[in-house]
Simulated assay, not measured.
Amino acid sequence: MASLRRRAEEARWHTASQVLAWLRLHPGGTRAALAQDLQLTSGLATELTGRMRALRLLAETPAPPQGRGRPTTVLTAHPDGPVVLAVELRMADWRHATAGLDGRLHSRGGARHASREPEAVLAEVRKAVENASERYGDRLCAVSLAVAGTTHDGRLAQSATLGWRDVDLTTLTSVPLLLGNDALLAGLAEARTGAAVGAAAALHLMVEVGIGGAFTVDGRPSGGAHGAAGEYGHQPYGDRSLSCPCGARGCWDLDVDGRALARHLGAAEPADPRGYAREILRRADPAARQALDKVAAALGAGIGALVNVHDPDTVTLGGLAAPLRAAAPETFATTYTSGLMAFRRGRPPAVIDAAHGDDGALQGAALLALDHVTSEAALASWSARQP
């Protein structure tokens, strides 16, 4: 009987969950637009939003004046509602931000790694979690971590970028912890609220140190059986004479980031490939232009191969992928098109820059946490805790 009552209570929150998902896609939307998009009657929309206001989930504020006419209000996240903490771990640094139910990032922070040892890095992240917990109390409902590696069952199974293997992440927080690969979460962000909104099938690729990505269908990315899907950088699209830190040879990773640029320029492998790539992108000398041309060629050819695999409507480029393409657009276009199967070349999928830019993984981590926080079960639990 208790389980039946619990399921009935959670079912009451299904529409509320849809409202909050709509809010993230339509920040500043009106109640009338909400009712139209979700096919609610005006009365039901008024009743539902009123109940959600009382439970500190929604707020309604006056819309900016637009000449004569009846004043209206817009829906926003309640200022005292649930919040989530999103964290991104990268090779050289880490950063964090909080987000309310509208998914907007604020209260940002982070730092470069003083040490890349797991204990030292995770200790700094744990401090950020503790600070957020002190600030928000029981309003902090989830922590989400985006990391350049493969996560499974609360552990970072492997990160060739960080040099970590089998690291327990569950000690970071006592509130629910969500984990995901950084590129996969960036793809989630583009599919839900970015450049790939509306695409039935979208391929997202992100270059940082190496290249990763996500294939999403109707806004849902696949993490695979063990969270390792989207490790595109470890496909053998590169030079087979090169050995990758992951243990394989010929990985595409090694041909599309700062390590490839350094190799083409005859320089030593950089300690921070991401920062090194940004330096080369700012240069205009012939040697730098030639190195960038080679990397853009490798990027385009690999994307063509992945389009053959996944058949997406749209391809989005995040991180350094967009400026690397822009550095040699003709070379990229040639190798991308030549890598496609012949029947695709008449109407190849558009390759466009990501909307979230450098914030893709952090935004995706926030959305992953909000998926949890706005589930029917979590909303029922939040409701039960309100006075």
Rank of each mutant, 00 (worst) to 15 (best):
A380T: 12
V217M: 05
Y276H: 13
R344W: 10
G247P: 00
L320R: 11
R7F: 06
Q18K: 14
A297Q: 13
A195V: 02
A305L: 12
A191Q: 01
A196I: 02
E269Y: 02
G81H: 05
V217I: 11
R289H: 02
L57Q: 05
D138P: 14
A199C: 10
F343E: 13
L162H: 15
A350P: 12
H264Y: 13
Y237M: 11
L184E: 00
A114E: 14
G258Y: 03
L299Q: 07
Q18R: 15
A59Q: 11
Q18F: 02
D311W: 09
E10D: 09
H372V: 09
A54K: 11
R249M: 08
L20M: 12
G247T: 01
S383I: 00
A201C: 06
V295R: 09
L317W: 13
D253K: 01
Y336H: 13
A291V: 10
Q363G: 05
A132V: 05
Y336T: 11
A120W: 08
E10W: 11
I211N: 03
L368T: 08
V87G: 07
E88R: 15
V129H: 06
P64K: 07
S222Q: 08
A199V: 02
A268S: 13
C141R: 15
R249F: 02
V147D: 09
L40R: 08
A59M: 03
L179K: 01
A384F: 04
A195C: 02
A120D: 15
Y276P: 00
H372L: 14
W94C: 13
A384D: 11
Q363S: 14
A305T: 09
E231W: 00
D182R: 02
Q66F: 01
A99T: 12
L205Y: 00
R344N: 11
R345G: 06
V295H: 09
A380E: 06
R126P: 03
A202M: 00
A199Q: 05
P286E: 10
E47T: 10
A361Y: 05
G223E: 09
A377P: 00
R192Y: 02
G223I: 08
R220K: 06
R31A: 04
T171M: 09
R325N: 10
V121L: 11
T193L: 08
E124H: 13
A32I: 12
G103E: 12
G300P: 09
R5K: 07
V217K: 01
A157F: 06
A214G: 13
V167G: 04
G360V: 11
C244T: 06
T316E: 04
L172R: 09
T337E: 06
E134K: 10
V143R: 04
T49I: 07
R5I: 06
E376P: 07
R95M: 11
W164A: 05
A128C: 09
D102G: 14
S375R: 05
T171E: 14
H372N: 01
V74L: 15
L317A: 08
L362R: 13
Y136K: 05
A2D: 13
A288M: 06
R282P: 00
G247A: 01
A296W: 04
G163W: 12
G212R: 00
Q18H: 11
R51Y: 04
D153K: 12
S383L: 01
T150L: 08
T216D: 02
A277M: 05
L145C: 11
Q36E: 15
G233I: 03
C246N: 03
F332Q: 07
M91T: 14
A202Y: 01
D311A: 06
A262P: 01
V83E: 07
A298C: 10
H264K: 00
P79C: 08
S159V: 07
W22I: 10
H226V: 13
